[in-house]
Design a protein around this nucleic acid. Sequence first.
DNA 1: GAGTATCGAAACTCAACCGTTTCAGAAGTG
DNA 2: CACTTCTGAAACGGTTGAGTTTCGATACTC
Lengths: 211, 211
Amino acid sequence: MTSATSRPDTAAAQAPADPPVEARRPGRPRDPQADAAILQATVEVLCEHGFGAFTVDAVAAHAGVGKATIYRRWPSREALVLDAAATLVPQPDVPDTGSVRDDLIALMSGSFEDAASANKQQLMAAVTAEAVVNPEMKRLLRDYTQRRRDGSAVVVRRAIERGELPADTDPDFLLDLIAGPLFYRVQISGRPIGDEVVADVVDVVLRGLAH
Amino acid sequence: MTSATSRPDTAAAQAPADPPVEARRPGRPRDPQADAAILQATVEVLCEHGFGAFTVDAVAAHAGVGKATIYRRWPSREALVLDAAATLVPQPDVPDTGSVRDDLIALMSGSFEDAASANKQQLMAAVTAEAVVNPEMKRLLRDYTQRRRDGSAVVVRRAIERGELPADTDPDFLLDLIAGPLFYRVQISGRPIGDEVVADVVDVVLRGLAH
DNA sequence: GAGTATCGAAACTCAACCGTTTCAGAAGTG
DNA sequence: CACTTCTGAAACGGTTGAGTTTCGATACTC
């Protein structure tokens, strides 16, 4: 299953390696800006109304595009949503500042600084809820968290080597302890997240885990 | 707005205090079991398919009940969902064990021990997502979290008086630090929550907050 | 120029679902 | 008994939205 995430129509048929110039087929070429506009409109609509009230017509209106233009690129509403969600997944690179504290703050700031906006908050909640029902969405969410988990593992390993953390520190548990409060604050408490909050959480957890 | 959460039909009109015997009106009385069956079916359907695929027909089928029976009790699908969600909100009483550690463990166990079941997890995610869009649902969620917040405040105050926590401990921050990881674990990591996990989180946070 | 594939807009088909109504019975009142 | 209100089942009306098709126009290749 190559999944709905790929857009097979765009691929240049199965012609064997032609000159890299794309403009082969006759007819009006696809508007390259439309793809981006549709994806962005999808995100906007998703943010504003959640999954429940999400409609393809709304996306078309938002993007200033005909529905046919959307369905020529994505086979279904479902595929469109998945693709749009995928574009939102940031690629957190693992920081290496020399101290656990700064590493963790950097790791978390990248994940939550923009998540504090009302729109992203809405979207995160919607995706989380959808993931329980929709296996594809679950996979997407798992991939994302796995990447952050990997980052945490690297940071913790380096910290142990520097002697900043006990040798038996569980990176997954550490991630729960730090990402949890931030996530909870955004989702449930509904309070904003500033840099000082991230730092406070990291400080408490690191102090609690020491020794 | 007395809100959709009350079911006005059941209330005995506006007759001034009659003998408490209910059986006044002629005609077949309402099946008292139907109410519970409908609410439970609502929860089941909500758990299985989330808000998106939730239909009144499905509830009727699940409860073995006609749709008319549902609509005679609740004015709309929306009101039914809210009432069903309200029945799920536990009433956490504030523990007083004599130690912060045990108080916090008790407070959290009551909130998360059954939340670990796949069904409750699904429902919690769905309600969280819906709350961002639906004001009534947001109010319900806020009430629930506020109650837990109040509990946290009491526990923290007593702990400060006993000298177990610094005098400037912020109860809301403490709640974020403890409930957050548990919530995150259920929602995102998808890993189960046992008593030992709750205790571990509490221990780390208390140690981190001391001094 | 002829031919082809795209564009936005609008109309269409079809299915799902909300909420209402109808119906034949059942369970209470007097 | 007559009368009233509830029951589950089924059908109905109305709306909404997914996905398709049609349309005149546009942009490209040959």
